[in-house]
């Protein structure tokens, strides 16, 4: 595996969170096994899943990296995927995360991603769901509205990490599946629109074939988007827990 220090924190994460990450990597949202996954037949999966997920954190990290890379390039890289930071930046680009800077750390980028995803998710929530999220998390706000929840989220990121984690978790529980589904649908639309270029004659067909093969071999966003969101959420939680322990000590 590529020793990626940005993913080393996975070894300290909670079993349930790692299990969710593992399930994202091995099963699709219908509960069907992913054709391109290679995790479920490895020795560590057999030994560790589902009770001792920390024992297979390296395999989880490696699988995420493989999904994040182009299969041909992965082969050239001796079966390894690109760095996590590169995958994260690709996912952010795909999810239209704004205000990204080249000097941002992985933590900064992930938090921006989480806020963007949550803001989109909040945009899909109904009034009742907004109210239930805000009531479930003790958010100090004046009005139960989408704008109010997004504003609270951005403030909490700096002011109250515990509440930030809580709100992110609640929002993700409510809507992340819908977002992931939409990500897949938009990727399919890309392939469809490319299909129209088939009308351009033999040169178009050649171009189309190469393009489609390259795309099929490319990063699997249907996997990396939810997986990176889960990793980002796990890191926020992990950082909050480590800070709490330091304060307690």
């Amino acid at each position: 595996m590529n020793q990626d220090t940005d993913l080393a924190f996975l070894q300290y994460c909670e079993n349930d969170d790692l299990r969710v990450l593992c399930d994202i990597l091995t099963f699709d949202h219908d509960g069907k096994i992913r054709y391109s996954e290679s995790l479920s037949d490895c020795d560590s999966y057999l030994t560790c899943y589902p009770d001792n997920m920390r024992g297979m954190w390296q395999e989880l990290a490696s699988e995420l990296q493989k999904f994040g890379g182009n299969s041909i390039l992965n082969y050239i890289r001796d079966g390894q995927g690109p760095s996590y930071e590169k995958i994260l930046r690709c996912v952010c680009k795909r999810m239209n995360v704004e205000d990204l800077d080249m000097n941002d750390t992985v933590e900064d980028i992930e938090q921006k991603l989480l806020i963007t995803v949550s803001a989109k998710a909040i945009g899909q929530l109904g009034e009742e769901e907004i109210r239930s999220v805000m009531e479930e998390c003790p958010i100090p706000v004046l009005e139960y509205s989408k704008q109010g929840l997004v504003a609270a989220l951005m403030t909490l990121r700096v002011v109250n990490q515990r509440l930030f984690v809580m709100v992110i978790r609640t929002v993700m529980n409510v809507t992340v599946e819908a977002l992931v589904g939409r990500g897949v649908a938009s990727a399919c639309m890309g392939i469809f629109s490319r299909g129209m270029s088939a009308l351009c004659g033999p040169f178009g067909w050649l171009l189309l074939t190469g393009w489609t093969v390259w795309d099929l071999m490319g990063p699997a966003y249907r996997v990396t988007i939810p997986a990176v969101i889960q990793v980002a959420y796990m890191r926020v939680k992990y950082l909050y827990m480590s800070d709490s322990k330091e304060i307690a000590a």
């Binding site: 054709y35 996954e37 479920s40 037949d41």
Partner: peptide, 11 residues
Amino acid sequence: MHPEDRKALQM
């Protein structure tokens, strides 16, 4: 079910 068996049956 072996994972490869499951994948093939899904297909």
